[in-house]
Simulated scan of single mutants.
Amino acid sequence: MPLQIINLTKKFGEQTALDNINISIDKNEIIGLLGPNGAGKSTLMKSIVGALKIDQGEIIFNGMNISENEIESKKKIGFLPENNPLYLEMYVKEYLQFVANIHKISPARVDEVIELVGITPEKSKKIGQLSKGYKQRVGLAQAIIHQPDLLILDEPTNGLDPNQIIEIRNVVKEIGQQKTVLLSTHIMQEVEALCSRVILIHKGNILQDCPIDEFKGRFNSLEEAFASYTAVS
């Protein structure tokens, strides 16, 4: 199993953000991570990439405990956070070259990834001059430039227009054929278009972890299923 999350608990003061979470993720899956705002999705993603310290439990990635092998683990994980932090004063190609240098990878990979995410016409512009759609593509490029085994995307199409959404989805779908992708989103069409499996988290607990058809089950739509599972009883 490339990723195993075992009895993971994370607290912020008195509040339990993740409560004894257990997940196993195999290779070449695109998994939809769903949940209402404040459910614990971002906390889970940040714990996996090592941006948050784990209180209890462990995360095993490619056979290594990520808390004990932080640098080695991060070399094989790509992360696009929801706020997509970019250096706006840098030029697109310059920024991606900078990321490539950090990972000690060939400059040829920079051109390859620029082509893959469809930003060739924009590569000589400053990042601050780009539309939101192109900024998202730059963020996606930095997340995949080192060809990670696991790609974690937090709301990757948030705020994009319909054409941009389709383009980003196509890139993610292509990546998912060779890599494991964990995708957090509120857009159910995205889940339906991309994911084979759904993990639903609510109030720090996993309510569902199953194939997408099973999640939908008796409901007419994923939205209906989501509303029912997360309804206040």
Results as ranks from 00 to 15, higher is better:
E72P: 00
I66F: 10
E115M: 15
I199H: 06
E82D: 14
N20F: 02
N69Q: 10
I60P: 02
H146M: 13
I77K: 10
E174P: 00
Q164A: 13
M90G: 11
E68T: 14
L34D: 02
Q208N: 04
D209Q: 09
R218G: 05
S24N: 09
M188I: 00
L151S: 05
L160W: 02
D213N: 07
G204D: 14
A39S: 11
V232N: 13
L207D: 01
I66P: 01
L80D: 09
G128P: 08
L160K: 07
V110K: 03
N22D: 14
I77N: 06
K125P: 03
I175K: 08
Q164G: 08
L183W: 01
E214N: 14
T120Q: 14
I212E: 09
V198F: 06
I25A: 10
I71E: 15
M45H: 03
L44W: 12
Q189G: 03
E70R: 11
S73L: 00
V117A: 14
K10L: 10
Y91L: 06
I165T: 05
K74Q: 06
L116D: 11
G128K: 09
A100N: 06
I66T: 05
G128M: 01
R197I: 13
S131N: 01
R197F: 13
N37R: 03
E58D: 09
T180A: 11
I77L: 09
T43N: 08
Q142A: 07
G13S: 11
L151G: 02
C210A: 04
G13E: 07
S67C: 07
A100G: 00
I144P: 01
E224H: 06
H103V: 00
I23R: 10
Y229D: 06
V117S: 14
N20T: 12
G40K: 10
M45C: 11
K216L: 05
Q177F: 08
K75E: 04
E72C: 01
I77F: 03
T157G: 13
Q142N: 03
